[in-house]
Amino acid sequence: MNSRVLVLNQDNSPLMVCSVERAFILVFLNKSEMVRPANGHRLHSVTQSFPMPSVIRLNRYVNAPYKGVNLTRQNIFKRDNFECQYCGTRRDLTIDHVQPRAKGGTDTWTNLVTACKRCNAKKGDYTPEDAEMPLRKKPYKPSYAIFLKDHMNGQAGEWDTFLNGHHSH
């Protein structure tokens, strides 16, 4: 059983993803309630059968420190949908500094974008404006909710409502 369960805070904001076993224990101990069962799946004990959770909500509010998304190559690719932010190709991807390092550009969410090697070489040490290579979309710091979607494994429909209301750009 490798399904994941979306855990909502008491105010319905996405908090984390946990295993079915952990979610079941939280519900069983009355620390949370089941918001949405997984389609037709059930958990069986020796004498009983329970609906398998897909989304649960904690009964008391947990003051969770904001979970930032780590700035890594893979996460930049993910944010940019594995597409070059200049030409849109999905081949030969690398990372480009929008404001080049040579001109004081830093390693931040808003200065790093996915670029193919060809566009990266063509842009060189220029800004997109100077190189006349406009970005397809402005780079932003992604929210934690967006990255929770990666754990969905086919549970997309069951979690969508809870994740879509909570992304901040």
Rank of each mutant, 00 (worst) to 15 (best):
N30I: 04
M1K: 06
A156N: 07
T161S: 05
Q10I: 07
Q48G: 05
K149C: 12
V113T: 09
N63V: 04
G88Y: 02
E129N: 05
W109V: 14
E158L: 15
T108K: 14
A121Q: 04
L15Y: 10
E158K: 15
P128G: 03
H169L: 12
L29Q: 13
S143V: 02
V113N: 08
Y140H: 09
R42G: 01
H97I: 11
L6F: 03
T94M: 13
K78D: 05
Q99T: 15
V7A: 09
G124S: 10
M133N: 04
T106W: 08
E33N: 09
L148R: 10
K123C: 03
R60D: 07
F162C: 10
D92K: 07
K141L: 03
R91H: 12
A145H: 02
L8M: 06
K137G: 01
N59Q: 05
W159L: 12
K117S: 13
R90H: 11
V5H: 10
F24D: 08
W159S: 07
P100G: 12
L58A: 06
F147I: 03
D96N: 09
L135P: 06
N153E: 07
G68E: 12
H169W: 12
Q10D: 03
G157K: 15
S45F: 14
S45E: 13
C87V: 02
S54G: 10
F24W: 14
Y66T: 05
F82H: 14
V62I: 12
D92M: 13
M34P: 02
M16C: 06
S3E: 14
V98W: 00
F82W: 15
R57I: 12
G88F: 02
Y86A: 00
T108C: 08
V17N: 15
P100Y: 08
F82T: 01
